[in-house]
């Protein structure tokens, strides 16, 4: 892929993550019944970015998403998004690099990392680590949400990569 094509794709993925994250916050999930719990749909843009535009490109998707949340929902939400996004990106990059796992496994690990980093950020911001009393619930939900986004990623990414002429 040429550098220009990569840049354009990266910008498009930033836009996709912004749309997915906005769409998702408009979508109530009473089924899950957990404070602040979401499906993590915008992670689809990040997991797509890793094989298509590489580590630097996917980092920019995480950064743009956090910036958007910072502007629309405030400093606290922005910091929490950045913490979750960075740890989950690091986990995904590592697992993709190991090349032993499928999209479902990578996605579940990334969801768990995202939730854990957000709880840690919430605990540090408030000076109260009791927020971890919900950790088990977020971990269980990250298996469900991670599997759903992982299946979507596994269905979407390979044909998208072929269409874009990636390796």
């Amino acid at each position: 892929m040429s550098a220009a094509k990569k840049n354009a794709l990266c910008a498009m993925l930033c836009a996709v993550s912004a749309v997915l994250s906005t769409l998702e916050s408009a979508l109530p999930l009473p089924v899950f019944f957990v404070p602040g719990c979401r499906l993590g749909l915008s992670n689809l843009a990040v997991i797509t970015a890793i094989p298509l535009v590489g580590a630097a490109g996917s980092l920019s998707v995480v950064g743009v998403k956090a910036l958007l949340i910072f502007v629309t929902r405030g400093v606290t939400a922005g910091i929490m998004s950045l913490c979750g996004g960075l740890l989950s990106l690091a986990v995904m990059l590592f697992l993709f690099w190991l090349a032993r796992f499928g999209f479902v496994g990578v996605s579940v690990a990334s969801a768990a990392a995202h939730n854990t980093a957000q709880l840690a950020a919430a605990g540090l911001l408030m000076g109260d680590m009791r927020v971890f009393s919900f950790w088990w619930l977020y971990l269980l939900l990250s298996i469900v949400a991670g599997a759903l986004t992982g299946v979507s990623a596994g269905v979407i990414i390979p044909p998208l990569g072929r269409a874009l002429g990636a390796r």
């Binding site: 890793i50 090349a99 796992f101 499928g102 999209f103 496994g105 992982g150 390979p158 990569g161 990636a166």
Partner: peptide, 16 residues
């Protein structure tokens, strides 16, 4: 990054 075609939807290691 590894080749896209090498990443399956679900691998046995995912169970781990």
């Amino acid at each position: 990054m590894k080749k896209l075609s090498k990443t399956p939807l679900f691998a046995a290691a995912d169970i781990f």
